[in-house]
Design a protein around this nucleic acid. Structure first.
Lengths: 339, 339
DNA sequence: CTGAAAGCGCTAACAC
DNA sequence: GTGTTAGCGCTTTCAG
């Protein structure tokens, strides 16, 4: 077995509790013994056992990550590694570890979360997605277990701490940008309406058009759940309309890449024939042909703030509910042109 | 506090140990009491406390994940979510949880691993990368802590269980494929030579050329560490050679996308002017223009087998060292043409 | 400022 | 088959 607190205590000629206090860096301990103990720890190569500490202190210093069901194609999106990185940075700063959960289906995910929570493996949870009706959220909320969501919860927005962009405004601005370039026939290509982010963006899109007195058309709104097959057709249909759009707002760079691809096959040039603004501004956006004008939503910060605020909530039980809005900004590249 | 084993015991009129046995599904316990206990658990809404169990049994049922330092651009690569998914599936099957570690630098990563291991937070570790000189591997090996690596370790290959593709053969075949199309001037674009995978593939490339009696040229070998800036130049230089290559093998789809991009800017058409074979076959490969001919390396399986074999090793201490080779296959799309 | 002792919730000999 | 009893390694009153 590894070296324990007892052995350190013996070596330093103190009680185990004193060693424990040194670890916790208790203020009421003399510099002298502190030093003595530290030396002993050093010499024995002591490392605290987290599990034991967790059991005694009823806290794990770990936060749980709930990913979308891995069946989802969403998972392929570079969005995730990036939020992860942000979360990880925030956690790291406060010495929290990360515990992951994935399930293939929604039910599996819920199950895994229950295990994690009831098994007391984590002190809090961050949800990396936000669906319209979500069992995980209900479960967590009901048990009053600390959690934050990346994105906007569908229900109880006021009672759930979440980190989000102002997706409504972001999409409104993106659309206005296109309007400013002279476009009136602007289509919206978004993901599943099950995702709150899609809903918000759709609303922003509609608002921009309405404000500019451009009539909305149902044919101009497509939900492209599947990045590939489904998308191809949807875009093709869109372009076959008598009055086909001259510009597109696309909910995600990854999707936009698919769109770009389809357009190319149809012999439609970007930005000459059609303009595109997309979202997220991942590395992909600058590597596509043409490089995409994309709304940067600061994914890293989204993650960073999520773990930060979760930890605050964990450490201070009556931390107020917060809504943290991460800024966004349009990065102009070469996928848009004036009409 | 939550309901414990004791309360269940009391309610079912048995000893705590009996309840424990029921949880462990011990064979030598009567069906009758088993049922009685289960009912009590049900009624009280009992959930075992993992932490307590871990402490008592000296095992956590969790495996640690070591990601490459997050500073690396590598992190952006869709490769990771996919291995993760595979690992997660393998872990899930055996009821293991996942614990993540990331550091910004190599040293931070090592630190995090030490914490995870010494803190007894995990029973084993899987490394999601394989670098040429790696402290994490040395550390783990020295302590004889169970681990497997995804990819091929640089040293001690025989003593470290790892899950890998036959990258040498895969790249040789990819190169031969191009040779078969009539290409003789084939350049190699790979990642950092710090990564073992790059080394293996480079070797496979060289072998294919040698076997075909095509002289190797140093100018034809480029390491493109940075996907963007650096890459642009490297490719440009390559194409400015008097005898520029007519085909490229690229170590990764993501990189290939960058290459495609640069080529386009230079007015060089794929596959008319130059052919490209890339690696990994992620979703990206079919979404690029043109869709990439790419070697599918079964990333998901790479992850799946990694967690599988790690768990075996954890559960059976004298499980032999294994080398697991995941198959690959060339997926033809539209980035190659006959010369 | 430091020590003694009682747990945290569960497992694992060892009895019977 | 089931109960008793020690711990696992640490934290945390409570004394002093």
């Amino acid at each position: 077995m590894a070296v324990t607190i007892k052995e350190v205590a013996k070596m330093a000629n103190v009680a185990p509790s004193t060693v424990s206090r040194v670890i916790a860096n208790s203020p009421r301990i003399s510099e002298k013994t502190k030093k003595k103990v530290k030396e002993a720890m050093e010499q024995l190569g002591y490392h605290p056992n987290f599990i034991a500490r967790s059991l005694a202190s009823q806290s794990t210093q770990a936060i749980g990550l709930v990913m979308p069901s891995s069946g989802d194609v969403v998972f392929q999106n570079p969005f995730f590694p990036t939020v992860l990185q942000g979360i990880s940075e925030g956690a790291h700063e406060k010495n929290y570890a990360l515990h992951m959960t994935t399930g293939k289906s929604e039910d599996e995910t819920l199950d895994a979360v229950i295990h994690m929570v009831q098994g007391r493996r984590v002190d809090g949870v961050v949800l990396l997605y936000s669906k319209v009706e979500d069992k995980v959220i209900s479960y967590l909320k009901e048990r009053d277990f600390p959690f934050v969501v990346v994105g906007k919860p569908y229900k109880h927005v006021e009672e759930i701490t979440h980190v989000d962009n102002d997706n409504f405004r972001a999409m409104r601005e993106a659309t206005e940008y296109l309007i400013g370039l002279g476009h009136h026939q602007i289509a919206f290509i978004g993901g599943s309406l099950d995702l709150v982010v899609t809903v918000d963006r759709l609303l922003g899109y509609e608002r921009a058009l309405r404000d500019a007195n451009i009539p909305l058309r149902n044919e101009y709104i497509v939900q492209e759940e599947f990045l590939r097959e489904g998308g191809q057709e949807a875009v093709a249909e869109l372009m076959q309309l008598k009055e086909h759009p001259t510009a597109l707002v696309v909910a995600d760079d990854f999707m936009a890449l698919g769109v770009l691809n389809t357009l190319d096959e149809l012999g439609i040039r970007v930005p000459e024939d059609i303009s595109i603004v997309s979202f997220n501004n991942v590395l992909l956006a600058e590597m596509s042909k043409p490089p995409l004008t994309s709304v940067d939503i600061n994914i890293l910060d989204l993650g960073y703030q999520a773990s930060k605020s979760l930890i605050q909530k964990i450490e201070n039980n009556n931390e107020p509910t917060k809504r943290i809005i991460i800024s966004h900004n349009l990065v102009e590249r070469h996928s848009c042109s004036k009409l």
